[in-house]
Each structure stands twice: as C-alpha cells, then as structure tokens.
C-alpha cells in the first residue's frame, strides 16, 4: 500500500508536469488531439498506480512520449495551416447571414436542439437574432448576433471611456506581495506609511490594490470571531 501511495505521488507529478509542458490550452477547451492525449494520460497513470508489479517507468515513459507527440504536433501546427487543419479540423459555419445551414448541421450530426442550447448559453433565445454561428474545432459555438441585437457599446454612443488597467495587488490576506511592490517602484517603508495613515497594521489588511492612476485602495479584515 505504501508503494501505491508513493507511486501515486510520482505519477501525479509526472502528469502535472506533462500538462504544464503542454500549455494552458490543455486545461481549457481541448482540440481533438489534446482530448485524446488527456484521456490517455489518466489511464496511463492509473494502471501503474494500482499495479505495483508493473515498473513505474512503464507508466512514465508513455506519458513522456505523449507529451512529446503533443508538443511536436502543436509546433508543426503553428508552422503549417494544412497540418493544423488535418489535426484539429476547421471551423464550420452553421448559421450564415441569419440562415441555418442544414446541410452543414447534418454533416456535423448536430440537431436543432444542440444549436438552440448553444444560443441559450449565450443569452440568445431567438434564432432570428443571430447573424453568424460558427462551430469551432474545440466544440465551442461562437455566436455573432445581428447588429441591432448586440449589446450597446460606448462606441455606439460616440463615447471614449478611459482605458482601465488591472490594478496591482500589493497586500493579500495580511501579506505584502513584494514582486508587485517592486513593479510599481514603491518601497515597503512607503507602504507602511500609507497603512499607518489609515490607522491599520499589515495583518489587518485583507486586500490592498494600487491602481494605475496611483490610488491605493484598502479592504480591512472583518473580525468575525
């Protein structure tokens, strides 16, 4: 049993490293080849985890091989459009200029229920409101509503709002995040001074954000106990 536990740790690390090496896409929407590899990962790790008679390397070697295949496929796909189309397929337009492409739907073996479900998930209940719908290679349906039905944007109102940039978090749960403090070229001494002005101490601060326009916003910890 101890061996199984140790093997589980090792295989977990191997699978995690593999997924990290394959990049962020692997944990988000998956392309067909990525889905295949992710499913295989689970099985490859599970068998040597339980069967202590199987050498650990028999689980790790195929995982390394799969990571290599996936990384190589991605690298070649980046260079060649034809190869990318062969591996991942190409997006399919299922609604074009408001007209449903029934031939394409049949080819994709998609029912109208599937289309309506996808529309509802994008807050569209009437199919007449859709200008274009594209089924992407990762299975996600991208919907472009008709111009009159899309949400209003500041551009429609001839407004030019100021760009909002992400603030830097400099204190999180009573701890100073030195990396972010360095990014805004401020010292801990400065931060302490600012906190003192608010009659607080670092451990009392739940969150402190520094905005791009130089504002420091504090959120105090609540004493619930």
């Amino acid at each position: 049993m101890t061996i199984s536990v140790i093997r589980t740790f090792i295989l977990y690390i191997a699978v995690m490293l593999g997924l990290r090496l394959m990049g962020k896409r692997q944990i988000g929407e998956l392309q067909p080849s990525e889905l295949v590899i992710t499913i295989m990962f689970g099985n490859l790790a599970a068998v040597p985890m339980q069967e202590t008679g199987i050498p650990l390397i028999n689980g790790i070697a195929p995982i390394i091989t799969l990571v290599f295949i996936e990384v190589m496929l991605s690298a070649i796909s980046l260079k060649s459009k034809r190869f990318r189309r062969f591996i991942s397929g190409s997006p399919s337009i299922i609604i074009r200029r408001g007209e449903i492409d029934l031939k394409e739907l049949r080819r994709l073996r998609m029912s109208m229920d599937d289309v309506m479900e996808a529309l509802r998930s994008k807050d569209i209940v009437n199919i007449d409101d859709v200008e274009t719908a594209i089924l992407d290679t990762d299975g996600e349906i991208c919907i472009v509503p008709k111009a009159a039905k899309r949400p209003l944007t500041p551009e429609d109102l001839a407004l030019s709002p100021k760009e909002e940039e992400m603030p830097y978090t400099i204190i999180s749960d009573g701890r100073i995040i030195t990396d972010n403090l360095n990014k805004i070229n401020k010292s801990e001494k400065w931060l302490m001074g600012e906190i003192k002005k608010k009659k607080l101490a670092i451990p009392d601060v739940l969150l402190a954000n520094y905005t791009r326009d130089g504002k420091l916003c504090f959120k105090k910890k609540e004493n619930n106990n």
Binding site: L21, T65, V67
Partner: peptide
C-alpha cells in the same frame, strides 16, 4: 522553452531505452 525541454526529456528517454 517548453518545446526544447520536452525534446530534451524525450531524447533522454530514448537514450535511456537503448
């Protein structure tokens, strides 16, 4: 960096296998 590291690990695996 990830691609190079993967290739390196895979090459090490092949050498290890031999």
């Amino acid at each position: 960096k990830g691609t190079i590291l993967t290739c390196f690990i895979f090459a090490a695996l092949i050498l290890g296998m031999i």
